[in-house]
Design a protein around this nucleic acid. Structure first.
Length: 489
RNA sequence: GGUCGGUUGGCCGAGUGGCUAGGCACCGGUCUGCAAAACCGGGUACAGCGGUUCGACUCCGCUACCGACCUCCA
């Protein structure tokens, strides 16, 4: 009864059945960060989206190899012009550090943030500087194929020539003639045959720090090259899924397709998957626009746009409550709504162990489960899946309150469903008992609640309310239930 | 200017040619010593104008507004 998993392919502009090239294996490559500054909300989105894809493919039984690169060289501020400076070199100069110190620093914070967001580590995390040889080999292949040319000791990709046999623009929906008339003329492009030709290898200018020897010059690889070289090295020629943010479709992924197709004489990737952007006041959030919020700022609340701090799991839930191909607008209000909803769901899950079972169920767990999987199979529709889980939350609460009944068998299924969907696939986790660092805190609270219970038994509500109010002030929330008093920090 | 996408109720955000998205907020009720939580119930929606259709928020066209890409960006 399991429906087929379908995913939207940017290349075909439609949802397609997911059928890997070599089942049960599935290869997934995602463009990782250029490590020159702190990860922001946008990085959270891509990596959470593809983390969920990775988790879901594994759940479906595929043996997945997840490769996510670290760009630590070659990413220029202005790709086409001579004035373009390597982002990492520039940052190194600004912070008076070695380029590799910059790389290490921001790679570390990226890893820390991803761990905080509970994303699984990729199986392979290749770095561009560790694959200079592979990139040079790919350049050689392209030169031999006559699709690349050397000019003034740099090597460029001949887009015009490529387009004679292939379709440059297939992914982004662009037409070469349009690009010709629309691409900006920039300084220092004399080396290239055409403005839209892109660099495979660039000769290092005097003073350039990050450089390597090559048959053409002492220099460095072009940005688009690393992903082609590393994805094919670790996932094969061709491979299954290539992911990234929508903003990478052009030129980055278009160029990747061109390079790889020219080298392979066939399409390098079966499914191209792209997530949409996070917006802020309707505008894209990006480092280059200066309107971004870093993840550390979210955790601390230290940003002028933040009313207060937010937990990593709130961010994760917030992101998953929107479909990955829609834009998602940031606001404090939306974040706080996500936070409350997430809390409600977690509290319902906590109640699962306390549910009393009966002979027959008055709720339909199989139906709920079927709907949840159907939503995931429909292009990873996490918001709809979550809406079904909330229907389930109402069921759980109703059973808890004695308004509905559940059989032992169905309860088992329900626990299984939430365990799989919420923790394994959505990758959410229960908030740590922050503050309850030792048994001491818990013991003190329990003692006060015991005193409050006595006061209530004696109808001394002034005392019982005072205890409750004081605990509330300290951040302890009290919930009176039939079974006694529950508390959370 | 070119290409593509969007416009859903107070906010976020799904979806469908006719049948409840969901979350948060709000209102009423049940429960409770009171409150919180939970449960039950409630209301407001599909940018505008035409067209197709028995019927459109959903398809088509036009208009308005917003955004993305065309430089680097997740």
């Amino acid at each position: 009864m399991k429906s087929q998993f379908r995913i939207y392919n940017t290349l075909s502009r439609q949802k397609e059945d997911f059928e890997p090239l070599n089942p049960p294996f599935a290869g997934l490559y995602v463009c990782g960060p250029t490590v020159y500054s702190s990860p922001h909300l946008g990085h959270a989105r891509v990596n959470i989206v593809f983390d969920v894809l990775y988790r879901y493919l594994k759940q479906l039984g595929f043996r997945v190899r997840y490769v996510r690169n670290i760009t630590d060289v070659g990413h220029l501020e202005n790709e086409e012009a001579d004035t373009g400076e390597d982002k990492i070199s520039k940052k190194a100069r600004q912070e008076h550090l070695e380029p590799m110190e910059i790389v290490q620093k921001y790679m570390n914070s990226f890893h820390r943030n991803m761990k905080e967001l509970n994303t699984l580590e990729p199986d392979i995390e290749p770095r561009a500087t560790g694959h200079i040889i592979e990139q040079q080999q790919l350049i050689s292949r392209l030169l031999e194929a006559g699709i690349a040319y050397e000019s003034n000791s740099s090597v460029y990709f001949d887009v015009n020539k490529y387009n004679e046999e292939h379709d440059y623009g297939a992914l982004s929906g662009r037409v070469l003639e349009d690009l010709m008339s629309n691409t900006r003329e920039l300084e220092g492009q004399d080396e290239k045959r055409n403005v839209y030709d892109f660099a495979l290898w660039k000769k290092a200018s005097p003073g350039h720090i990050m450089k390597w020897p090559s048959p053409w010059s002492v220099g460095f690889p072009g940005w688009h090259l690393e992903c082609s070289a590393m994805s094919m090295k670790y996932l094969g020629e061709p491979f299954d899924i290539h992911g990234g943010g929508m903003d990478l479709i052009f030129p980055h992924h278009e160029c990747e397709i061109a390079q790889s197709t020219a080298a392979l004489h066939r399409q390098p990737v079966k499914y191209w998957v792209h997530n949409n952007m996070i917006t802020i006041n309707g505008q894209k959030m990006a480092r280059s626009l200066g309107n971004f919020i870093t993840l550390d700022e979210l955790w601390s609340g230290d940003h002028e746009m933040l009313e207060r701090a937010y937990e990593p799991m709130t961010i994760r839930f917030f992101i998953l409550q929107a479909h990955y191909r829609s834009t998602l607008d940031f606001s404090n209000e939306a974040l706080q709504a996500a936070e409350k909803g997430f809390k409600r769901m977690m509290e319902a899950i906590d109640k699962l162990d306390a549910l009393k079972t009966g002979d027959k169920s008055t709720i339909d767990v199989d139906d709920l489960s079927g709907k949840a999987y159907a939503a995931m199979n429909d292009d990873l529709n996490t918001p709809v899946m979550i809406s079904h889980l909330f229907d389930g939350v109402r069921m759980i609460n109703s059973v808890f309150d004695g308004n509905e009944k559940i059989s032992a068998e169905d309860l088992g299924k329900l626990k299984d469903l939430y365990g799989t969907m919420v923790f394994d696939i959505l990758g959410l986790k229960k908030p740590g008992k922050a503050g309850a660092d030792t048994g001491l805190t818990a013991g003190l609270i329990e003692t006060l609640l015991e005193l409050r219970r006595q006061a209530r038994d004696n109808k001394d509500f002034a005392t019982s309310d005072r205890i409750r109010d004081r605990l509330t002030e300290l951040g302890v929330t009290i919930k009176d239930t039939k079974e006694g008093t529950d508390w959370t920090l």
